[in-house]
Design a protein around this nucleic acid. Structure first.
Lengths: 226, 226, 226, 226
DNA sequence: CATGAATGAGTATTCATTCAT
DNA sequence: AATGAATGAATACTCATTCAT
């Protein structure tokens, strides 16, 4: 045991193994990126924030762009698994969506930085970074789309096709719906962050109240007719 | 006819009156900002794009930040008036929303750059610029909120208050709904831009099909109950 | 006439037109590059040496590599025209070579930096720069080769071809000879720079004494036979 | 047989004795230096190329500069001994030179990297390294000079001094001649490397054909007289 | 009204070098 | 004998902004 356990000068945590350091770096980077945006964030700032010299940052993460991409990746994985692990596939689609959204709003409340970096920062960057982000967003949308498609199929099974006409949603529309849900959830998440906290279930219920009540009939073939 | 007609070199359009020049500058700026993001866009780039020297840019618009703010302002005004002028207040809220959304999707399809700058770029910027943007975005949301509040009041009038309990949306929820609509519209607008064009009415109907079918009962007090 | 002609604080020569500034920059760059080598030379250093800020340097010359290439180009042109304008084509090849070499050694003595940058620095750099240099060097060698080929043709005219065998130099060998001359001249130029000055004619005569005395018979077909 | 034979991973050759490791390091260093030049070469690169950690590199060779010096030393020794061991002092100077040059061209063909580092890289470096190099290069030139001086003495012995005037080469000129030879040989070596291989004797003969035919009379007092 | 010339203050990135193990 | 972890100090390059004309 070290003799200076009783705490003297701020002991610099040194000789940290690589895997751990990389996580520290990503933590700091997500924080800074979410605060100032990709371009405004400086590598100096990030390096200082994780108490490491810039060369280490570059040695481990390669470049600013790669660092940003790594952040995106990590946060996207987190968010997707939060959503996915909440949506028990044995439940019906509406219930799954509700639980998924609850998990999502819970995650965003707790990791607002992750969310900001992933959705707001990410979409605003020009050419180089945009693709990593689009890809990540796409995964989220895909997860939701899958959910909806199952709902559509089930609803279609129940639908009468006596007249041979099926006014229910097609493949493309499921995608559009997913976009609506994700966009709405994003926007609502931002609103909650701004207006003050509320339990994630509450936020999820808000969204479901608007979306699902319309979505469910839509899955059965109803349309808005001006 | 100009006296120097005999000179064959590409005559630079000179001596343009201020008001016009400013518009040219804003046009270029919106284009560049939307393409590369606020930080990545350079004043050199913008100056070149509107064929004006940088000193003129600064003389007329003050600074990069002010220039960005001016862009935001102009585009926000455009979009709000597009939305507002479509929503004839004599119609019922659903119809208004439908027409407003149609106008909105039409505008975004034609001026995608305006929308990108206003909605995506704007949210991503750090401290200095954020306020201008939040304000502008707020105006859009406010317009929608106003619409919804009217719908709520009307619906409330029809609602029976026998039991004294009103499960209909309160003031805050109207704002949440507006967020949902704007977020969903944004997301859908992006999707349409990516997937290929379709008539704005069609996109608006998509959104209404999902949102309004649920929104309308919600206005009357229905809730999603898990 | 300006009123402060009597010299006060070191008046910064400002507002210099572009063409002139570019020359100043090249002057400084050649000086620094020749002194420290391509990599060791820093743009800061060069900027300071020509009393201009770095942004100007980059605005006008593009990048370190382009700047170096521009130096190479300018100095190569100078040296080639010095050599070429001295070698009056109406004279016989030996005399031309002598005059060309005299001009060359004179040039090198006066512009040692040009020479160093062109020959010594240039050859030592890795991939990116090497080609500009090789090209420049090639031009010099080509000029000499042309000279020699004329000599060869003339000598061949005088040669007896009774036995049908021509042991005189072929095309390839003229190139080899040119390499020898240029290499020797280069080396000798370096030696003169190190050992102290002597009139260029003297150096040229040294080289001719060694080279031409052997070259001339060689042009006529003589060979060293071990 | 090693006891850990059962382990299939590529076993890093460890515990190599110092002397051998140093040679491996020098091998790698010469390769890298010749490829990229002194400054552009990085210690990381070199360390990786000889599969050793940087601390070892520093422990054994001291610093980048010392490492470069060590390269220069080793390669200079190699080349000088190649030249020297070929030039049997019992032969006459012309023959010695021919054999020396043959050995030289042979060496360069086989160890082009050694030569590049020694001759081209070396001359281009600024202050710190230059001296090591100049010294090494000087040794090569000295070896040639010695040869020539013997030739001069012998020739002088044969020369008539009836008129008391000796137009033969003095000490300084022997050095100049050596420079010419070395420079020409270098240039020719480069040419051969570029144009495709030929037997070293052939290249040596080329050079002798040009140089010696003139050099030999020059040793006897002949001069080029314009 | 209009601009070519000019810069102070950054930013990402790299390198030679050294501990602590 | 050997190395993963770590850094101080440079370096190329860019940008928002301002004079002098």
């Amino acid at each position: 045991m070290r003799s200076d356990t009783r705490e003297g000068a701020p002991v610099k945590a040194k000789r940290v193994p690589r895997a751990q350091r990389e996580q520290q770096m990503l933590d700091a980077a997500v924080r800074i990126f979410s605060r100032s945006g990709y371009h405004a964030a400086s590598m100096d700032e990030i390096a200082e924030a994780c108490d490491v010299s810039k060369p280490m940052l570059y040695l481990y993460l390669g470049s600013k762009e790669e660092l940003f991409a790594a952040c995106i990746r990590r946060e996207a994985d987190r968010i997707i698994s939060a959503f996915a692990s909440a949506a028990d596939p044995s439940l019906d689609p509406g219930e799954q969506l509700f639980r998924g959204l609850t998990a999502f709003f819970g995650f965003v409340a707790e990791h607002r930085e992750s969310w900001i970096v992933l959705y707001q920062q990410a979409r605003a960057q020009g050419e180089p970074v945009v693709e990593d982000v689009t890809a990540a967003r796409h995964e989220v949308v895909t997860a939701v789309t899958a959910l909806l498609r199952r709902g559509i199929r089930e609803a279609a099974g129940e639908r009468t096709r006596a007249d041979g006409e099926d006014t229910g949603p097609d493949r493309g529309e499921a995608a559009a719906m997913a976009q609506v849900i994700v966009g709405a959830a994003d926007s609502l998440a931002g609103w909650v962050l701004d207006t003050g906290p509320e339990p994630p279930e509450e936020t999820a219920r808000r969204l479901m109240s608007i979306i699902w009540i319309g979505l469910e009939p839509r899955l059965r073939g109803a349309r808005y007719e001006g």
